[in-house]
Design a protein around this nucleic acid. Structure first.
Lengths: 363, 363
DNA sequence: TTGTAAGCGTTATCAT
DNA sequence: ATGATAACGCTTACAA
């Protein structure tokens, strides 16, 4: 294990796996095959026909030396990196995971490689990562929930076409937003609860700095108003899109305003927290309180009971984004219509038979 | 916001966002600052002292043109890409997420950029991804659960130092394994159940093709034998590390062998599935059956009741791996001791008071 | 300290 | 169809 290379023992057994020589270059292959570098390049890229004989000689040399073209040199010369920068807010979030999967799978077809980085919800990081993308000369950029202001994004989009998910921007040839209809989703969810007879419906909000969190709050209010139920600020608690925030918000809610019969959470992680807080207090779901989330994380269907929630087709959204950015790179026009969200009714909501507690006494 | 650049109105406020000109090169900066390219390069890399006056002139030019060095050209010339290839089996798995986070955070300090790709548990993909890394001339490779055989890995490690997580390999200067003590973790978990008075402990296994899944099974058996409890193949069901597999396995188990008082699952996702299957059948956790998982996914502490499980310090493991690969790149020797796993006792297990059902009648 | 010039490993434009 | 040859944008001896 300490010695290597120039083995002067002729009787030693041949190593089965061809060693990958460190710096085989295209030129070396050309020499070995007795052709010019350009011919090798042409074969590699299929950019022109070459004589079968030479083709074969080159292929043999490639196999023999275990040659792999240097992507860097290729990109430098061609000006194309076949690379897409994907900026997420958190690589490790269960929420982004499916997006990444969709993006990766759909990008591999046209031969692009995604570069995933995360900005950890930090706007300075977000900018730094974007600069890195530029420095790497990515062919395109996909942003998952950008926080930077639109004019900054527009600036960067001059360097590489950019597609922003979950955010609406002024579309142009190099900057496009794939909007997601959070408002409608939240309205549907709240409406479902109302239909089930609920009147006192609490809401645990997401961070006010998030566009989608606000849209979800608006959807909640809209449904309430449409049903002629007044919006009660007392029924709204602030969360942070994380489980811990859900726990805390739910505890405050139960302490302050214990009469609600349903809770709508701005996202699933919040709902997990809220559900645990209720469990701790012996509040049963859905028997005592109905619970609805938002996102439909993979785990949500395995909660006990399985969570009723608003499903975002994240994987599909990821695929759409990938296809979109490739089209933009190819300077094809794209049409991005807002992604509709659908309510998935599972087992955390139930119909309230005597319609509303308050009216209970009169019925 | 709409106008930019060459502003000939001296009284107008400076535009905050300098437009990012495409294709500014180091040479252009050199010309603008009246110095040679090498001087600019030196300033960029801090590789030598330059006169403050020139330094400033260059910095101004860089700012004015919004220049960003081309990483590709730099890497091609220097032979270093400052890039680490990270191969996961599934980007979107909640399990890998934390590893990625640890790797990313710890890699950014020494200035490396991770490139995440996934092989989707497909061995052909795994190989293809590795080839891509080579083609990209990554400085190092981190493998999360390699499936390829060791000699293949050794071959690739000749091109770039390689660190494999969750798998033991013959360590060398360019190939190292960071072993995780699955056996011990599984033994502890089973032992805990035994201590609580359980005797009929079922096990839902992971895929037999996974080294760690086998180790966990061995840990389970070991604890049983140490306690003088015979191993009963009837109590073992095959899972697949996914929730669906957990559901199915648990259903088979309940149908076939309903007397067990505890279930140990090869991973948390399996436990989620098992828990749901029990919920459907009205089997209470932990009142009727105790449940233990393995991994401690972020969600597990928010299950109801919170899941008792074996915690893998994934984030920390990710950090260790990142530090390790950087050391290998710098040709420093590294010492990797097996990562110990710890049981996190939460609320899905409970003590059985009349020790064992079978002995119940005699006492 | 600073500049000149030769690579780095490809692709792409010309000729032939 | 094939081969020179000049980029691509940077780093890095080597000189000065």
């Amino acid at each position: 294990m300490t010695h290597d290379g120039s083995n002067d023992n002729p009787g030693a057994p041949k190593v089965p796996n061809v060693p990958l020589a460190p710096n085989v270059t295209l030129e070396a292959i050309a020499r070995a095959a007795g052709v010019s570098p350009s011919t090798v390049s042409r074969i590699l890229n299929g950019s022109a026909r070459v004589l079968p004989a030479k083709q074969q000689a080159v292929e043999e040399a490639i196999a023999r030396f275990n040659y792999r073209p240097n992507v860097l040199a290729r990109s430098l010369a061609s000006g194309r990196t076949e690379t897409i920068g994907v900026l997420t807010q958190a690589v490790s979030s269960p929420f982004y995971a499916e997006w990444l999967r969709g993006i990766e799978e759909s990008l591999s077809e046209p031969g692009f490689t995604p570069i995933f980085v995360s900005s950890r919800w930090n706007i300075a990081d977000e900018k730094a990562r974007l600069e890195q993308f530029i420095a790497r000369r990515v062919d395109g950029i996909i942003l998952l929930h950008a926080q930077l202001d639109e004019s900054t994004l527009t600036d960067y989009s001059r360097r590489a076409p950019m597609l922003v998910l979950g955010r609406s921007v002024q579309n142009s040839a190099t900057l496009a937003g794939l909007p997601i209809d959070n408002m409608q989703g939240a309205r549907d969810a709240t409406h479902h609860l109302i239909e089930q007879g609920h009147r006192e419906i609490a809401f645990i909000a997401g961070p006010a700095s998030h566009e989608d969190a606000i849209e979800r709050l608006v959807g909640y209010r809209t449904a309430l108003e449409e049903a002629g139920i007044g919006f009660d600020a007392d029924l709204v608690e602030q969360g942070d899109y994380l489980e811990t925030g859900g726990v805390a918000a739910m505890e405050r809610l139960m302490a302050r305003h214990p009469s609600f019969s349903a809770v709508f959470c701005a996202n699933d992680q919040t709902a997990y927290g809220a559900r645990l807080a209720m469990f701790r207090r012996g509040v049963r779901v859905p028997d005592d309180v109905s619970l609805v989330g938002f996102d439909d994380l993979p785990t949500s269907s395995y909660m006990t009971p399985p969570l009723t929630t608003v499903r975002q087709p994240t994987y599909e959204i990821g695929r759409l984004a990938a296809q979109g950015i490739v089209q933009m790179i190819r300077k094809q026009s794209i049409a991005l219509s807002p992604i509709p969200l659908t309510l998935v009714t599972r087992e955390t909501t139930r119909r309230i038979t005597p319609p509303v507690k308050r009216e209970d006494t009169r019925t």
